[in-house]
Each structure stands twice: as C-alpha cells, then as structure tokens.
Design a protein around this nucleic acid. Sequence first.
DNA 1: ACCGCAGATTAGAATAATTGCAAACTGCGG
DNA 2: CCGCAGTTTGCAATTATTCTAATCTGCGGT
Lengths: 147, 147
Amino acid sequence: MEEALPMTQREAELIERLRHVGLRPTRQRLALGGLLFQGDDRHVTAEQLHGEALAAGVRVSVATVYNTLHQFTEAGLLREVVVEAGRCYFDTNTSEHFHFFFEDDARLMDIHGTNADALTQVLPGLPVAPEGMLVERVDVIIRLRRA
Amino acid sequence: MEEALPMTQREAELIERLRHVGLRPTRQRLALGGLLFQGDDRHVTAEQLHGEALAAGVRVSVATVYNTLHQFTEAGLLREVVVEAGRCYFDTNTSEHFHFFFEDDARLMDIHGTNADALTQVLPGLPVAPEGMLVERVDVIIRLRRA
DNA sequence: ACCGCAGATTAGAATAATTGCAAACTGCGG
DNA sequence: CCGCAGTTTGCAATTATTCTAATCTGCGGT
C-alpha cells in the first residue's frame, strides 16, 4: 500500500476541474493534466505528451494519451489545432485566438496582443455561414518561414 | 503503336502550362492535370483523385498521384489545405481566399464574395511576424456544422 | 473498511494516409 | 532513332491514430 502523498493546491484544483466536466480524476488523467496545465500555455502532440509522461515516471499508454486528450478537448479544457497533414496539436489555451506556425521547426505559437485584436474584431460578423449551418470554430494559422 | 489522338485546345494549354513551370508533360501529369483543371475550382484528396483517374481509365499509381500533387503545389498550380489530422486537400484555386469546412461530410468550400473581402483587407498588415520570419501563407478555415 | 460495477486503462493489433526506394520506363534534345 | 535525366511504379516502410477485448480501479453504497 502506498503512503498518501500530500496533495498540493494545484492537484486539488485539477481534481475539482475534472469532476466539474464529468471526468473521473484517475491517476493518468491527473498526471497528464498536471503536465498540460502547469502555468503557461502549451501546444503538444500526443507523442510529445506521452514522452513527457514516461520521462516523469508515469506509466501510461499511447492509447490513453489519445483518449485523454480527446476527452479533455470534448470537455473544453483543450483545443485541437490541425497544422500539418498527419500531425495534430492540442492547445491548452481555449480562448479565441490565432496561431503562428513555424514551418522550419514545426512549432506552434499563440498570437495575442494588439496586433491580433483588429483581426479578432473583424471575424465574428463574417463571412456569413451558409443556410442551416452554424460556425463551430474559426481557425487562423499564419505560416512562417525563416527569412 | 497508338494512333495520335487529336489534341484539344485544353490539352495544348495544359502542356504549355506544365512546361512553363518546368514540369515535363507526361501522360500521367496530363491526365491528372486534365481532371484537376477542368473549369470550376476543385478540392480533392490524393485518394479521390486516384479514384477518378482509375475510373477514367488512366493507369496511375497512388505514389505518382502524391508526387504529382506535390509537384503541382510546389509549382504554384495547387494549394494544399490541411483541415483534419490525417487528411489533406489540394485546392485548384491558388488565389488568396478562405475556406468553409463542413464537418458533417468533410467537404471543403471556397469563400468568395463581399463577406470575405473585409477580412482579406485586414489580413495583410497583421499580425506582424516575429523578427526574422516571413509570412509564408495565411490559412483561415471556418468550421461548420449542421444547425 | 470492504464490495461491486461502470467507467477507465492497457497492450497490441488494425487501419489509414503518406513517403521511401530501387528497378523499369519514357520524353525529348541531339 | 539513341541515350539519359527525369518519371513512374509497386511495394515495403513509416507515422499517426483508432479499435478491441481483457484487465483494472475510483467511488458510491453498505
């Protein structure tokens, strides 16, 4: 039997957060959540996160990482961003924002600040969705290359 | 030996177009080009195009379809659009424009018309690319779902 | 504390899209 | 009509993701 580890504030918050969206706070979900939601915004692939988990000594399968990422996305804790065929990123920043994508090193970066604001303001109104359709999400990706 | 078929105007134009971008007008490239550049704008996946080619009685391998699509893209005859993890579309409309994506039937549609214009006008200036980087391309995808 | 079970996790196989490769083929300039 | 660089091909290899069926586990009820 394991000694009950002291629970940090962050852990307690994470548990509450999971419960709130109807997900049972299992060992794996807590571990992955802990890696994902530590401070600054992150953009990870399933592979990456799996690697980090293993490196941190957490036993977890790739399948579970995928399950968890999708469940988190479903629950609104993550946002999925597709940039390249056959690679998909999960973004811990779920607010309305756009992305820079650095093609040279396949890295994704949030765009925030005044530059993006004008763009944000223009988007909501247009273009009008076709009859009977509603806008699920708007993705704006600005692809960059070393000059 | 085959009888030389009469060459239509469109075929001749396609040959010229390929030569102009430095691609040898081979049987396969002509067939695929013919399917792609017939009138209205198209959004096809490699699989789809391969299917169409076979249906049209053109012998061509999947590998060649991929090669050709990428060469055409490289040459500026096509534009690649990534919408879903593990599926990538090629758009015969290479001008600056945005896309609707119908999540229900995985279909892509160009956005043109006045609605998109305001957005187009806002894009060029911002957001400013980070130091030493230049904007390769801006992708705007508006994801739709049946209401 | 202990039980039981619905929900979660797992390894490994299966699927899907795409790319790599080495051998065979073919426009096209000479 | 020759020759070769550029193309194409089938197939194997890779990569990302999903499926599956057996096993495990959080947690409410006792």
